[in-house]
Design a binder for these strands. Structure first.
Length: 496
RNA sequence: GGUUGGGUGGCCGAGUGGCUAGGCAGAGGUCUGCAAAACCUCGUACGGCGGUUCGAAUCCGCUCCCAACCUCCA
């Protein structure tokens, strides 16, 4: 089985071959920490978390680098996002960055996303960025104007065939017609498609560093070029990010890397699609947004109730990372039911015992085939919705085995073990889900014991046809959010 | 206007020349003291108009509609 992934660069699915066998370098553009992280960002990082987890599962040694941008994003009025956040809250820019970086990490932990191997910050790599600017100038692709340095896009295009525009499909002629004059220092550029790699700081600009050209700050696109090169080399395996970064950010990044060292940064570019709400991109800037916390608590006009982090994660897994995903209350309710069904089936499965006379029959083959298919889906560009579908096909089998509908003796002991292991691997290791029912119970031993006592009393009542008592117990537990399920082997319970 | 990607059953969402996606909701049934859960069965969808083909939701053309990017955003 080999891994295929969709390369934005070629717009085709390609067989993945790492530069160094057994090792993968992966760079993902992280958040700009000027305000609370929003749910759209989370979707992208959850998507890459699953990709990271799957690559690890395949046995690769992965260096996963995800940056934090804490300087360089300019607003329309030319003010840096970080500076503005600092001014408004009377904080040091670094305090703003730290505050929201902390919040971002908290939310990532809540979503059960693994931390990256390295999480570099733009402000921690000013020297590397200055060096890269110098290299670009030395190679003839950068020019200075009044202390700012710009990338000479037209010259780069003229001297490097088919590099600029390959990612986004832009062509020079279109760029020519895209003259916009509302950007600061626009007049300093030789061409509208040129972009700043070093900006001279205006007097009131508080984020500033010394450089050969001026006291100023690096351009936005530069940080990723400099930091990916530093930690992953001039060319590495995978570069990822949100679709909205394709142009201009990633296009300019490629130009900077090629312009400074003659190498394209990455062999494979992966882009995640946008999270929508009401059919429109979820976005901080236009207010069409819901924060992770609001979604968890239900404190938002967009949802009728709160949805736990794992339900939201499950919801995201139900769509492919390259497709848009429309967030609606109805879809979340469906995800909640589906998530519970999957978790419940896993609990049932882990308790399943193979009968003594078990041997591989028709059902055994069926289960093995579905397991193989589930891995094949993941190998096909990390197709989590299809892999999930395979898991649900197994859920039907698991429940059938449990209630005796399907012949347990047709499933061999090794296959049952494999099924149990596969479920654990997919749900917990690859999808990164947690069983919130089990996880939320700190005193589980005690709770289990108490529940056994209660259910035994109810069983006695039922044996005596004392329906009033048995229903009282069931209804009272239901009020506490505990659901009692009567089965052939007695009653079981789950937290709703 | 340019670039890119879409329009799939009540909802979400896969798929891609012939073979069941899956989840949720709905209908009928089994089980149960009743209920819940679970299991079984069911609906037969692919924007519109043409074309290619033995056969298209899947390929081609035209057309309508939507979104993202082109300005900070994952």
């Amino acid at each position: 089985m080999n891994l295929k992934l969709y390369n934005s660069l070629t717009r085709e699915k390609e067989t993945f071959t790492p530069i160094n066998e057994g090792r993968i370098g992966m760079y993902v553009c992280g958040p700009t920490v000027y305000s609370d992280v929003h749910l759209g960002n989370c979707r992208t990082f959850v998507s890459f978390d699953v990709i990271y987890r799957y690559l690890l599962h395949l046995g690769y040694k992965v260096r996963y680098v995800r940056n934090i941008t804490d300087v360089g994003h300019l607003l329309d009025d030319g003010e840096d996002r970080m500076s503005k956040g600092a001014r408004l809250n009377q904080l040091e820019p670094m305090e703003v960055a730290q505050k929201y970086a902390n919040g971002f990490h908290d939310i990532m932990r809540i979503f059960n996303a693994l931390p990256p191997s390295i999480e570099p910050r733009a402000t921690g790599h000013i020297l590397e960025q200055i060096e890269m600017v110098q290299q670009i100038i030395d190679n003839g692709y950068g020019y200075e104007q009044n202390g700012s340095v710009y990338f000479d896009t037209m010259k780069f295009i003229a001297e490097n065939d088919n590099v600029y525009g390959q990612l986004s499909g832009r062509v020079v002629e279109d760029l020519l017609s895209e003259s916009r004059d509302n950007l600061k220092n626009q007049s300093e550029k030789k061409h509208p498609a040129d972009f700043a790699i070093w900006m001279k700081a205006s007097p009131e600009h508080i984020m500033r560093w010394n450089s050969p050209w001026s006291v100023g700050f690096p351009g936005w696109h530069l940080e990723c070029s400099a930091m990916s090169t530093k930690y992953l080399g001039k060319t590495f395996d995978i570069h990822g990010g949100g679709n909205d970064l394709k142009f201009p950010h990633h296009e300019n990044e490629v130009a900077q890397n090629v312009g400074s060292c003659g190498h394209a940064p990455a062999n494979y570019w992966l882009h995640t699609n946008m999270l929508l709400m009401n059919g429109k991109k979820m976005s901080k800037s236009d207010g069409n947004t819901i924060s992770p916390t609001e979604l968890f608590t239900g404190d938002s006009p967009h949802v009728t109730k709160g949805y736990s982090p794992m339900i939201v994660r499950f919801f995201m897994l139900q769509s492919h990372y390259r497709s848009t995903l429309d967030l609606t209350d109805e879809a979340l309710q469906a995800a909640e039911k589906g998530y519970r069904r999957l978790m419940e089936a896993n609990r049932v499965l882990q308790d399943l015992q193979a009968p003594a006379n078990a041997s591989a029959g028709e059902l055994d083959k069926e289960i093995n085939d579905i397991i193989d298919q589930a891995y094949a889906e993941m190998n096909d560009d990390f197709n989590t919705p299809r892999a999930l579908a395979r898991l649900f096909e197994l859920v039907t089998r698991i429940n059938g085995l449990k209630d005796g509908h399907l012949p347990a003796e047709e499933v061999s002991t090794p296959t049952l073990s494999l099924l149990k292991e596969t479920f654990r691997i997919f749900i917990f290791d690859l999808f990164g889900l947690k069983d919130e029912i089990e996880g939320s119970d700190n005193g589980q031993g005690l709770t289990n014991g108490l529940m056994n006592v209660i259910l035994n009393i109810r069983q006695d009542a039922r044996a005596n046809k004392n329906w009033a008592t048995s229903d009282l117990i069931r209804d009272s537990l239901k009020d506490l959010g505990i659901q009692v399920k009567d089965g052939k082997e007695g009653a079981t319970w789950t937290v709703e």
